[in-house]
Amino acid sequence: MASTSNSTSSKIITLRSSDGEVFEVEESVALESNLIRRMMEDDCANNIIPLPNVTAPIFYLVIEHCKKHAEMKDNKEKKKELRSQGEELLKSDPHTYSNLMEAVNYLDIKSLMDLTAQWLADFLKGKSPRLIRELLKIKNDFTPEEEAEILERNRWAFD
């Protein structure tokens, strides 16, 4: 599915997502993941590497972001593009965004961890708790009494 063009002599790493899909990824891209890097250093990576915590659609997204991130170095235009894509995903499909964050975290891809966390942080600023819940589809698990108390106390902060 997501096999990359092996134009160079770059080694191809084979990975398998939790739902059984197999990916072939250029080593340079795969090495963005510290998890995969460590496994390769320990020589565990001659066969197919299983990624039990990542589903195919999410992994595809991760690879896509990794590539874009590699391209974007020193390129402000690309940087903007990647950022707006991230924000778009956050708005349109927060569920997938949270899965992306988890996957990136699991794969230990530092650059993308930073980006996805920062986008989310910027997204949250200036929004009310209710709006955040609505946009990210987060359940309000406070009891009505607790929520009333919090709102009451928050008036102090929002004065």
């Binding site: 961890m113 966390a117 920062q118 942080a121 949250l124 819940r133 698990d141 928050n154 902060a157």
Partner: peptide, 27 residues
């Protein structure tokens, strides 16, 4: 990590309310 970024960005009021808002989202 996300909240740290929200928190660290503004150490003065009124921008500190961002982190107060985050704290009221869920448990």
């Amino acid at each position: 990590d996300v909240v740290e970024r929200v928190e660290a960005s503004e150490c003065a009021w009124p921008a500190r309310k961002h982190v107060v808002a985050c704290a009221a989202v869920c448990r």
